[in-house]
Every structure is written in structure tokens, then in C-alpha cells.
Amino acid sequence: MTTTNPSVITDEMRAIVGVEGAPATLEVERTNCRMFARSVGHADPIFYDVDAAKAAGYRDIVASPGFLGTPIFNPNRPPAGPAEMSGRGYSIPYKRVLNGGTEYEYFPENDVICAGDTITVRGKIAGFEETTGSIGPMLITKRETTYTNQDGKVVAKMYGTTIQY
């Protein structure tokens, strides 16, 4: 006998699909570009050396793959963590969370992220899906985040998948 699990997706959750959250600002600077590249183990000088980056046709040191800037940290502002983890004001009955994967899309025809850039990031929930796997019933949340530079050009999009079960 199979049992159908009741859906955990509520009208409240459906209503927020596609709704953009408050924008945040990310800073791309030479020091954090270098630190990111160093921590991955990159050897390409375009990630470290301004002259090498310019000689290769870039405005400044290039942000290496996966680096989209550092959020502006302020200890006097409440952290955004827990609210983001549980969603935006909705709660679901599952306790465990898995990162289902991350995909970045770049738009080099618009611009390449370089040191000196200020990136505005806007995120939204792209959709919810429910499925049952070996670990039981799961809620899959798809998020889409858009990264726009100081010239209003979309330089990257991030597609994230969160699995709760």
C-alpha cells in the first residue's frame, strides 16, 4: 500500500514564488579577489596582478569562478541567517536541510566581474517541488539570484537548490 504524503506547500508559500527580496550589496575589491583565488589555489595572474589583468583586456583583477563579491558586514544589524534558512516568514515541518547544488551563469557579453565593482544582488524563490526519495518525502526549493553591477548590467545569475526532508 502506498501512502500519499500531504503537501507541505501552502498558499502562503505559493504567493512568494517569483517575489524579489530586498536587494543587498556586494563589494568586489582587489584584496578579496586575491584571497578567494588564493584559497582555491588559482595560479592565473589575472586573478592577482592588476597589470596582468589589464594586459589580458580586463578593467582590473578578475573575480575568479564562483566569486561574486563580499556582502557588506555590519555587526550592528541583525543577521539575516535564520530567516533565510526557514524561508521568508513561512515554516515547513521538515527539520533537515541539504544543499542540492549551485549553478552560476555568467554574462561576459554584458561585463566581467572585476575588482572595483559594486554588485547589487536580488534573490527570489523560483519554485517549490515535492518528491519522495530514499530519505522520505522532500521539499525542493529552487532559488534564483541575479547579480547586477554598478552600470546596471547583469553579470551573473545563481541558481540554487535546497532540499528539506
Partner: peptide, 15 residues
């Protein structure tokens, strides 16, 4: 830089 100064300040626990 702004990010490096913030990270250092965070490291020492300054608010």
C-alpha cells in the same frame, strides 16, 4: 579596502 577593514574589525570583535 572596505572589505579587508571590516574583516579585521570582525576578527577583533569590534562593533
Amino acid at each position: 579596502t572596505t572589505t579587508s577593514i571590516r574583516m579585521y574589525a570582525r576578527g577583533i570583535g569590534s562593533v
